[in-house]
Every structure is written in structure tokens, then in C-alpha cells.
Design a protein around this nucleic acid. Structure first.
Ligand code: SF4
Ligand code: SF4
Lengths: 151, 151
DNA sequence: TAGTTATCCCACTAAATTAGTCTGATTTAA
DNA sequence: TTAAATCAGACTAATTTAGTGGGATAACTA
């Protein structure tokens, strides 16, 4: 009963890379550390992080005292980069996928709506970088707890 | 490999209700007719249409020569109405769902992004009614074929 | 009243996706 | 050499999606 929801994979991946963006760029964070801090199943996260590696968003150091760090600076990594690395491109409906074509397309009146949605969603994701998230703890719930911890 | 895609169910349901909006309001269209015109599996469509019925978007006439027609006028039925009738509310990430709460929420920096996406998507879907689709055959592909058939 | 055509209702299956685990090899610092 | 880490890939379990089938019920027509 919930539509157009991003998968856990992507949420977890974003948690991880956002965590890295808050750490010293030279520091290597282990899977164990990230998983614990962000409350993500460790082995699952391991696989997710491998995908971010292959796409060149983060880099790794192997062996003891190894771990991960951002491959480029936080303002050069967008939400879209992460999402696309993990799940491929966003296609809000089947006909928005280039590889697929619908037989109704020539006389379909709703494709305009899908492309409008797709354009807007993509715009937000490409515009938002990890650096943008630095300051805002949680836009809506800036209440007692978060204020006191910031002091 | 395609993210945030609406399910076939919704696409089929929209095809059906859009088709009804192009027909005489008094005419009853049978499942068979709609399924054939819109190229949707008949039995599957039957179930989808029942959901639209229960939500009061369309009405039916039973028996021989029965069928379906819009329950209200085309400009009073939005995309959002149809989508919500078929799949429930749109929640772009788990934490946007009221029934679910994430333990990371208090210190999460990305909820703002999800709510922005959610707001924009919802805005387009609520703003767009079936009546809006009447004229536009297909915004992008207004090429030879559609132009000649319009003449 | 019988026959036909349609909605209505609910159980069921088959395929795909998602979320996650298990095993084990390889690399490197201490 | 041992411990701590990444790396690689097969595997499973649960859920969701897409679709089917069978049959009851209702209304129109002859
Ligand atoms: S019916 Fe229209 S909106 Fe749906 S998949 Fe086909 S072209 Fe796209
Ligand atoms: S981590 Fe943040 S964005 Fe993800 S579900 Fe929790 S609150 Fe929402």
C-alpha cells in the first residue's frame, strides 16, 4: 500500500555515503563502523557498498585498518549519482524506459504526465549533493533534542 | 533496473478510466470493450476496475448490455484519485509513511529531500484531471501520423 | 421462462523482485 | 603469523506483482 517507494537498498546506500561525507576525508571507515552507526544489516551493506565502489563514488583500502572513504568531494556527489549507481536510471513508467516501447504510445494521452514527473524528480535528485545535507539535521523536526545536541 | 516505477495495475487502470472519459457519459462500456481497445488482459482489468468501483470513481450497470461509465465528470477525477484508489497513498520513502517510523529519523538529514520529491509528485498528480488529457494526443510525438488523423 | 451477456466475488498460481545471509578467498597492518 | 578488513559470488526466504479460473448473480431479450 505504498507507491513509487525507493527500495531499502538505496536508503541504506545513501545513509552510508552520507555518513562518509561527515567524516574526515582521509579516514577509512569500515563496514562494521558504518553499519553500526547507521543501523544497517552489515552483510547487506557490504554488497551495496561494492556497487558504489564499482561506480567510482567511493574508494577503499583493503586489509587491516582498511575501510572506505569518498572518492570525490561531497559537493560533487549527487543523490542521483548514488541512486543510479544502485538501481539504474529512474523510469516513472514503462514507456519512459528507452529499451521498452508500448504499443499504445502513438495515441496515448498520458505520457506527458509521466515525463513531467520524471523531469521534476530527476531535477531534485541531480541538484541535491551530499554537501547540501551537511547543515540541515532534519528540516521538520528541529526541536529540543537536536538543538541541545548541537550546542 | 528501473526505479520508482508505477505498477502495471495503475497504468492499466488509467488507460481504462481515460478511455471511459472519451466516451459518451451515458454509454456503458463493457470490460471486453475496454480491454480490447486499450490492450489490457481482460480478467486482470476486471479486478482493477472493481477497485475503481469501490472507491466510487466509476459506476456500473449489471446484466446484459451492462458496463461501466464515469461516476463524476472528467474534470473531477484526478490522476491522484485513480492512483490512490488502486495502490494507496504515495510514500517516496519508508519514513514518509505515517504508520512507519525510522529510528534514524531524529538525526537524518535526507528526509527533507524525500518530502520535497513527494510534494512535487503529489502536486502534479492532484492537479492533472482526466479532462486535461482530452486534447493532447501525445505531447512529444506529434508527428506525421497524428497530424493527418486529426484533420 | 429460458438463454445470453454482462458484472461481481474470491481463490489461486507463476514469475519477478527485494531483502538479506553464508561461505570463503584475498589483502594488509601490526 | 595472526587478526582485521575488503572482495566475490552463490544462495535463500519473503513479499509483491501480474495474471488466471471458476462460478454466482443480475438484467435484458426473445
Ligand atoms: S499506455 Fe501510455 S503511459 Fe502507459 S505505458 Fe503505454 S504509452 Fe506509457
Ligand atoms: S534513514 Fe532517514 S530517509 Fe531513510 S527511512 Fe530513516 S528517516 Fe527516512
Amino acid at each position: 500500500m505504498s507507491l513509487m517507494q525507493i527500495p531499502r537498498r538505496v536508503d541504506y546506500g545513501l545513509r552510508a555515503i552520507i555518513y562518509l561525507s561527515t567524516q574526515d576525508p582521509e579516514k577509512c571507515c569500515s563496514i562494521t563502523e558504518i553499519a553500526k552507526q547507521q543501523n544497517v544489516p552489515k552483510k547487506f551493506l557490504e554488497k551495496i557498498i561494492q556497487d558504489l565502489m564499482r561506480r567510482g563514488l567511493i574508494r577503499s583500502k583493503r586489509g587491516s585498518c582498511g575501510g572506505y572513504s569518498l572518492a570525490r568531494s561531497a559537493n560533487e556527489i549527487s543523490f542521483y549519482d548514488v541512486i543510479e549507481a544502485l538501481e539504474g536510471s529512474i523510469t516513472v513508467n514503462a514507456c519512459m524506459d528507452e529499451e521498452f516501447s508500448c504499443d499504445q504510445l502513438p495515441r496515448c494521452t498520458m505520457v506527458g504526465v509521466w515525463s513531467e514527473i520524471q523531469r521534476k524528480v530527476t531535477e531534485v535528485f541531480t541538484r541535491t549533493t551530499l554537501a547540501d545535507l551537511r547543515r540541515t539535521p532534519c528540516r521538520d523536526i528541529v526541536s529540543a533534542s537536536s538543538l541541545s545536541s548541537a550546542a
